[in-house]
């Protein structure tokens, strides 16, 4: 019995009835050629699937998250405050690809971008400037990953290298009883606040840090204050005072669990 390519692909796609599957398996046992064809199809399916799988681990761009969620206020990521509007406006021409200005179907996207206003350009989690594996969306939550998660887990505020990709700022216990820490990404001009919830650092606030005019994109944590949006979140969430160096070290010792 010869099997068509369509039958073999249906087999590897799991779209074949039990009887045919059993017949093919049996035939395969003494027909190496059939087996090889089947294996090629299986490998192709796996390879095609695998080649796009990493997209799932990429952070979802902020503007898409906000669009799907509705207004930012309902989200777990704090709404960018009014103080960020100017920065958003300044960033917008660069953030919008020029091709968005073309007419056509994509015109709808441009209109939406204008309507979304502050969201476009103000905080672009998925923008090229952010390290690709720094954040991940899990449902409606944004989680710290990669360098950011590592820094939050391991770095103490004292003795951080000036060259560290991520610098940790204030650590505190939230009113909800979680350890929370502020952080800033050196190269991406992003700063935020994340709280340890279970195994993950859940990002509560993420905002574009003010950039040094003389060094576009070259945000310097040292000597420059945290963006106001982050400080406001700290004010809103903090229980008592920020942790001192000893308390911070003790918290790290306990894996940021209380």
């Amino acid at each position: 019995m010869t099997y068509s390519d369509e039958t073999l692909t249906a087999y590897v796609d799991g779209e074949i009835d039990q009887a045919t599957r059993a017949a093919i398996d049996a035939a395969c046992a003494h027909d190496p050629q059939l087996c090889a064809r089947l294996e090629r199809q299986r490998a192709l399916r796996a390879a095609v699937h695998a080649s796009y799988a990493p997209v799932l681990d990429e952070p979802v761009p902020r503007h898409l998250l906000e669009l799907a969620r509705g207004s930012g206020s309902a989200s777990c990521v704090a709404a960018a405050p009014v103080v960020d509007l100017a920065a958003a406006r300044a960033a917008r021409p660069a953030a919008l690809p020029s091709r968005w200005n073309r007419v056509g179907v994509w015109g709808g996207a441009l209109a939406a971008a204008v309507a979304l206003g502050v969201w476009i350009g103000s905080v672009f989690v998925g923008d090229l400037s952010a390290p690709p594996e720094a954040f991940a969306a899990a449902g409606a939550k944004l989680l710290a990953r990669g360098v950011v998660a590592r820094a939050l887990d391991e770095q103490l505020a004292a003795g951080q290298a000036d060259t560290a990709a991520v610098r940790v700022g204030i650590s505190f216990v939230s009113t909800g009883g979680l350890y929370c820490r502020t952080f800033a990404l050196r190269d991406a001009s992003l700063a935020g606040l994340a709280c340890k919830s279970g195994r993950d650092w859940r990002v509560q606030t993420l905002t574009q840090a003010e950039t040094d005019g003389a060094q576009p994109g070259g945000y310097r944590m040292a000597g420059s204050p945290l963006p106001e949006a982050v400080l406001r979140s700290v004010d809103r969430m903090i229980q008592g005072s920020p942790l001192d160096a000893d308390a911070e070290a003790a918290a790290r010792q306990h894996g940021w669990k209380r």
Partner: peptide, 12 residues
């Protein structure tokens, strides 16, 4: 909420 959960797959 369901839409937000789908975003990674829509992007893929």
């Amino acid at each position: 909420a369901e839409l937000v959960g789908l975003l990674p797959r829509l992007r893929r």
